[in-house]
Amino acid sequence: MLSTELNYPITKSNHALAIKPQVLAIGEFDGVHLGHQEVIKRARERADSLHISASIMTFHPHPREVLGQCKYTNLLTPVNTKLQILEQLGVDDTYLVSFNPEFMKVTPEQFVENMLIPMQVETVIVGFDFTFGHRGAGTPDDLCELAQGRFAVEIIRPFHQNGYKVSSTMVRQHLHAGEIDKANALLGRPYSITGTVVTGDGRGRTIGFPTANIDLSEAFVTPALGVYAIRFHVDGRSYNGVMNVGKKPTFVEDLDKPTFEAHVFDFSESIYGREVSVDLISFIRPERKFASVGELIEQIHRDADTAKQQLVSIFQ
Rank of each mutant, 00 (worst) to 15 (best):
K289Q: 15
M170K: 14
D303Q: 08
N240D: 13
F159M: 09
F29V: 12
R285H: 13
I40D: 08
A307H: 05
L6H: 05
M1C: 00
M57L: 15
G68Y: 12
D48K: 14
D201Y: 03
I26A: 04
L76Y: 05
K71R: 15
T306K: 07
D142W: 02
Y239A: 03
F283Y: 14
L116T: 13
F159A: 03
R274K: 14
N213S: 06
D142R: 09
G202I: 01
A224N: 04
A47C: 12
Y228D: 11
M1T: 07
F283C: 11
Y164Q: 13
L187Q: 13
S292P: 06
V221N: 00
I207Y: 00
S270E: 14
E179V: 03
D142V: 03
A185I: 02
E38S: 14
Y272A: 02
V79L: 15
Q161T: 04
L96K: 05
Q161H: 14
R237V: 00
E298W: 07
V171W: 12
F159P: 04
Y228G: 12
H51Y: 15
R231Q: 13
S313F: 10
F132G: 10
S313Y: 11
L34T: 07
E295H: 00
H233M: 02
K12D: 12
K82S: 07
I155A: 08
V166G: 05
D256Q: 12
K20Y: 03
K105N: 08
S277C: 07
P140R: 07
K182H: 04
Q37P: 04
L280Q: 03
S3A: 12
F290K: 00
V234N: 05
F220C: 03
I214R: 08
I193G: 01
H301R: 09
A25C: 15
E179I: 03
A304V: 15
F220Q: 00
P9N: 08
L34P: 00
A16C: 07
R135M: 11
F159Y: 14
A137M: 13
I26D: 05
K182R: 13
E298Y: 00
I125G: 03
M1Y: 04
L34Q: 13
T131W: 02
L311T: 12
C70L: 15
F103G: 01
V112A: 10
M243E: 13
V252A: 00
I10Q: 02
G294V: 01
F111Y: 13
D279P: 09
S192C: 14
L89D: 04
Y164A: 10
L143Y: 08
A185R: 11
A291F: 02
T194D: 04
K82W: 03
E65N: 12
V242Y: 06
Q69M: 15
S292E: 09
F232I: 01
S98N: 15
T259K: 04
A219L: 04
D256C: 07
S217N: 06
I156Y: 06
M57Y: 00
F209K: 06
L2P: 10
T306I: 08
N213L: 06
T211I: 00
N100E: 14
G241R: 08
L296T: 07
Q69C: 10
H33D: 13
A177F: 04
Y164T: 10
E102R: 15
S313N: 14
S268V: 12
G204T: 06
I207G: 00
I155S: 08
R42A: 09
P286Y: 11
L6C: 05
D254F: 05
S98I: 11
A183P: 01
T4H: 05
D93P: 02
I271D: 12
S277T: 04
